[in-house]
Amino acid sequence: MTDEELISGIIDENQLYFKIFVDKYQSLVLNTCFHFTHNKNDAEDITQEVFIKAYQTIEKFTFQSKISTWLYRIAVNKSLNFIRDNKKRTIFKSLESFFSSNVKYNPPTEDTLAEDAYDDIKTQRLISLRNAINLLPENQKTAFILHNYESISYKEIATIMDVSIASVEGLIHRAKLNIQKNILKKIKKSKSL
């Protein structure tokens, strides 16, 4: 079944077509959201929001781009909004815990990792890498994740992010350097402790 047929079926409110659409693109949306949030539950929640948004606005889809490009764009925007909201919540929570008790607040990025495996060197390195990616500016993070984890071409990333291909190249290059810099800082910090 082609994407055009799927979309016209969804516009006609055929639930079966919408189910096929969700099954076809679930992996794409879920994994994109996961690479932004690093949390399975959050990624699933955002995925639901992405498909709801797609269902509600599918009539406006004009086939000027691929449907996957359109879904990537919604997924990226929803994930970035989630991270922004989460940052605000984290600040409030840390303030709350600072004023109410001396209990240390754990950042949500480490939630997904089992505590018994925490000592594992690979897990520590993975946390360090995720933190380094989280510290990137939004546009660098988006370009890096889409290129590195979703293996999307520069051209498609440029369409998703609404920038030129040269900008995408620059963003990915800077993102790689900044990730390395953030990792190096972390290593030096842990060595000095």
Partner: peptide
């Protein structure tokens, strides 16, 4: 350490599909 940590970017973690996702969305 830098090499070992940065090398992890090549490992592409993938989540398994949630079979109940469509139900939850509808």
């Amino acid at each position: 350490e830098l090499e070992a940590t940065y090398h992890l970017t090549n490992e592409k973690e993938r989540l398994e599909n949630n079979p109940y996702l469509f139900m939850e969305i509808s």
